[in-house]
Amino acid sequence: MSKGTKDSNIFQVRDYRGATIEDLDVRPAISINPTTSIDEAIEISYEYEFDFLPVIHEANRKLLGVLNVKELIENAEKIRKSPLKPITRNYMLWFHQKARQNYDQEHEEDISPKKTPVYSTIYKPGGSKKYSVLTPITPLEELAAFFNSGNYFAIITNGRGDFVYGVATPEDLKKFESSRPKL
């Protein structure tokens, strides 16, 4: 999936007639931990039909980043040959470099921490980075603009951003568009 740019928008300006992210019927978020093996992450991805899996801390359930499983599969041969241990923390997109440093310090001895269930509540990441808040009541026009600005997934949260409902992708919006007649 390629990133959108200002010159090549994924979505054209469109009136979604009051539809919101809730109308996409985004499934609940499925999460994994940084210590989840790549094989297990791919298995979870296939089972739940997700290309992106939120990665949360085992103990405090804070959102640390995301794993692009589609990209992993495309680079499977490189991963097999890599000297890095085949676990999520080595291949995920970390939202904050400081969170990665803190996590790595906590797990220096490489002790396997307890896993959280895939349907765990996910809490917002720490740090001061600004995020676009996307909730179930966000208009689809805003979601389309979010994807057009180069984002290839959206984490749908409550208004405070401290509870994750699910992950939406451009494919979810395209599916919605194709199921509704254009004005």
Rank of each mutant, 00 (worst) to 15 (best):
K130L: 14
F146H: 06
E109I: 11
K129C: 05
E49T: 02
G65K: 09
G127A: 06
N68C: 08
K78G: 06
R61M: 06
E74K: 08
D15H: 03
E177G: 09
T5M: 12
F52T: 00
K3E: 15
E171G: 05
E58T: 04
L143Q: 01
E58M: 10
N158H: 09
L183A: 14
A19P: 01
E58V: 01
A29T: 07
G127L: 07
K114F: 12
F147D: 02
I38L: 08
V118Q: 05
A19N: 06
R180L: 08
A154Q: 04
A59R: 15
Y119G: 01
F153N: 10
Q12L: 12
E106F: 05
L64V: 04
L173P: 03
P54A: 07
N75T: 13
Y46S: 10
I73E: 04
F11R: 05
Y165C: 00
E58K: 08
N68K: 10
R180T: 12
Y46A: 12
Y152M: 01
I56R: 02
L140G: 01
V13G: 04
K114D: 09
A19S: 12
Q101C: 07
Q101W: 05
K98Y: 04
K78Y: 14
I79Q: 04
I10N: 02
R80L: 15
M1F: 05
S37P: 08
K70D: 07
L173C: 03
I155T: 06
S37A: 07
G65D: 05
A19L: 06
D39K: 11
H96R: 15
P170V: 03
V69Q: 02
E108V: 06
D172K: 07
G65S: 13
A145H: 08
S37R: 12
E74S: 06
A29I: 06
Y165P: 00
D7P: 02
